[in-house]
Design a protein around this nucleic acid. Structure first.
Lengths: 157, 157
DNA sequence: ACGTTTTGGTTGCAGGATCAACTATAGCAG
DNA sequence: CTGCTATAGTTGATCCTGCAACCAAAACGT
C-alpha cells in the first residue's frame, strides 16, 4: 500500500478556489433570478435552451444533456414549468418513447424579460476582471474538466 | 432603455463550459465519496477543514466562511455529524454567543480513511490534462470570480 | 447604566435534487 | 417472430438546502 499522491501547494490553492466558485456561484446567480424573475437558475437555463432550439422544441433526453442534468431532475422541472404554462409536453412523432418539451409564447416572454438582467449578472460575477486570454483559457480548462468528469462517469459504470 | 450588453461568442462558450463544471463537478465528487465513504462532499469538506485547524477546533462562523456555506447550512450539517459522533459542539470560552465544532477521534479516522480516495478523484476530475500554468491561471481566475461574487453580495445588501 | 444594533447560532418549514423502482417502446440476436 | 436488452421517461420517498423567524450575548452610542 503506497502513499497516495497528495496535491501540491499550487494545486491545493487552485482546488480551493475552484471549489469556492462551485459552491458560491450558483447562489449568486440564483439570488438575482429569484428576486427579479421568480426563477431558479436551472429553470432559466432550461427555458433559455428551448428558446434557442429550432421551433422552440427539444426531446427531454437531449434537453437534459444540454442542461447537464439527469433525466429525472429535468422531468420534475418540466412538470413545474408546465404548471406555470411556460412549457408544453408533446409526444414525439419519430419515437413513441420520447417526449418533446416545447416553449410556449408565455415561456418565451419570460426568457425575453429575464435574459438582460441575468446576462448582466453573469458578466458581473464571472467575466469582471478577466481579459480575452483569460476567457479563452477558462473555456479550455472547463471543457477539459467536463471531459474528465464524463470519462470518469463512463469508467464507473 | 438601451440594449443590454450581450455576451460575445467567446464569452458564451466559456460561460457554458463553466456552468457545465458548476453543474456536474459536485455530482462527480459526491458519487465517489458516497460510494467509498458514505459522505457527502460538503460533509467531507467540513471534516477536512476541522482536521487542519489547530486542536481540530473552529468556531462555527469561521468554519462556515472557510466552507463557503451559510451558517444555517453548516449548523444542520454539524448536527448530523454530531449524531454520527465525528464532531462535537463545545461552548466558546471567549464569546458566550459562539460555538466551537471539534473533530473527534472517530471523525479524524474518517478523514484519514477517505482522504486518499477523494484526493485521487479530485486529481482525476480537475487536474487531469492541465499543466502548471493552467493550474496557476485557474486559481487566479477562480479567486477573481469569488471576489466578484463577494462584491455583488455586499452591494446587494 | 441603558436602549439599540449587530453578531453568532438554532430551528421549523417549504421547495428542490437524488435515487430507486417502474412502465413502455425500440432495437437486436437467433 | 420471440425473447432480451437498452433507451426514454415518470413518479414517490427521502434527504438537503435556503429562508425566515427566533433567541441570546456582545458592542456601541449617549
Amino acid at each position: 500500500m503506497s502513499e497516495p499522491q497528495w496535491l501540491t501547494e499550487d494545486e491545493q490553492r487552485a482546488w480551493r478556489a475552484l471549489a469556492a466558485v462551485m459552491l458560491r456561484l450558483p447562489g449568486g446567480l440564483e439570488q438575482q433570478l429569484q428576486r427579479d424573475a421568480g426563477l431558479s437558475h436551472f429553470e432559466y437555463w432550461v427555458l433559455a435552451l428551448l428558446s434557442e432550439a429550432p421551433e422552440w422544441r427539444l426531446r427531454l433526453s437531449e434537453l437534459a444533456h444540454q442542461a447537464n442534468a439527469s433525466l429525472s431532475r429535468l422531468s420534475h422541472v418540466v412538470t413545474r414549468l408546465e404548471l406555470r404554462e411556460w412549457v408544453q409536453r408533446t409526444p414525439c412523432a419519430d419515437d413513441a418513447r420520447a417526449t418533446m418539451a416545447e416553449l410556449t409564447q408565455a415561456g418565451w416572454a419570460v426568457v425575453e424579460a429575464s435574459a438582460p438582467g441575468h446576462v448582466e449578472r453573469v458578466r458581473e460575477l464571472v467575466f469582471n476582471g478577466l481579459d480575452d486570454t483569460d476567457v479563452a483559457d477558462l473555456e479550455r480548462m472547463c471543457a477539459q474538466i467536463v471531459r474528465n468528469i464524463e470519462d470518469a462517469k463512463r469508467r464507473d459504470r
